[in-house]
């Protein structure tokens, strides 16, 4: 077994994005919500690297702080989806029979409900916040996670070592927790990465249609909405948050892809 290279650019990018968001208070040149720190609609300059918005707020600072909200929502949503989805898929895959049938049909039904509409209804009812957004996004991502977890468990349970372990009289719960779970962990990690990308995308989309964090705080999606509204004044305003969102999604997707490829090649090299 050999590794091509331990360094992964996408992994590095993810760490960088997380680090920069964490360090936003140190890195930001201005208070993100302070108005008129520069001329309104100024383009990028030495003083304001990313320019300023309609109220003369520094865009670099707003994007750094916006990243904290976006990343926080994405991470919590991913965690929620992982917990609900894994439990859902594990139960279906381990129990089988009608429980499996019922749980997987529910997953199909949930996936048939348009994501944006579900989010529209629930968020307009409870209001957008750093609590409600991750819950809604997390729920939306859990059926796909459940399907993945189920198929991984079903494949794993059919393998020889499980048969051997069962024959040795090991308890079912212990078998699942200490034998099967570690073996499906890489697949869960792939799903985790894809989910994080999807969460950033969903949060951005929801904010873009006005269901995001309310002003003066702003996530990247909210910044894009504001920038889009002022697109006739300056295109820098919408460009930087859009770039931040796209790069983040790209990094998470690429990282997931990378783990999957290394998993497949490892399997085929055995």
């Amino acid at each position: 077994m050999k590794f091509k290279s331990r360094f992964s650019f996408s992994g590095f990018l993810i760490l960088l994005i997380l680090g920069v968001s964490l360090a936003a208070p140190i890195l930001s040149p201005y208070d993100p919500n302070a108005i008129a720190v520069g001329e309104p609609f100024a383009g990028p300059s030495g003083k304001h690297w990313f320019g300023t918005d309609d109220l003369g707020r520094d865009l670099l600072s707003r994007i750094l702080y916006g990243g904290r909200i976006t990343i926080l929502i994405a991470i919590s949503a991913t965690a929620i989806a992982l917990i609900i989805g894994t439990l859902w898929g594990l139960t279906a895959g381990v129990r089988r029979g009608w429980i499996d049938e019922f749980l997987m049909r529910t997953a199909d039904a949930t996936m048939a409900i348009p994501q944006i509409l579900f989010a529209l209804v629930s968020i307009s009812a409870v209001g957008a916040s750093v609590i409600s957004l991750p819950i809604v996004v997390g729920i939306l991502l859990s059926p796909t996670t459940a399907r993945m977890a189920r198929s991984a468990v079903v494949t794993e349970l059919a393998s020889d070592y499980v048969v051997a372990a069962t024959a040795s009289g090991i308890k079912r719960s212990r078998l699942i927790i200490s034998e099967v779970m570690p073996n499906i962990a890489p697949q869960l990690l792939v799903q985790l990465s894809i989910n994080a990308a999807a969460a950033v995308m969903l949060e951005a989309t929801l904010s873009f249609i006005g269901l995001g964090i309310q002003p003066p705080n702003a996530s990247w999606g909210t910044l894009m909405l504001q920038g889009y509204a002022k697109i006739w004044n300056t295109y820098w305003f919408v460009f930087f948050p859009a770039a931040a969102v796209t790069i983040t999604i790209l990094a998470f997707n690429a990282y997931g892809e990378r783990i999957r490829v290394s998993m497949d090649s490892r399997r085929s090299s055995i």
Partner: peptide, 22 residues
């Protein structure tokens, strides 16, 4: 294709508006 899977639809829309409308 990888890029296309990662760009939110509305960002593609914004790019087109910037180029073809603005």
């Amino acid at each position: 294709t990888s890029l296309g899977l990662s760009i939110p639809g509305f960002v593609i829309g914004i790019i087109f508006i910037l180029i073809f409308s603005l």
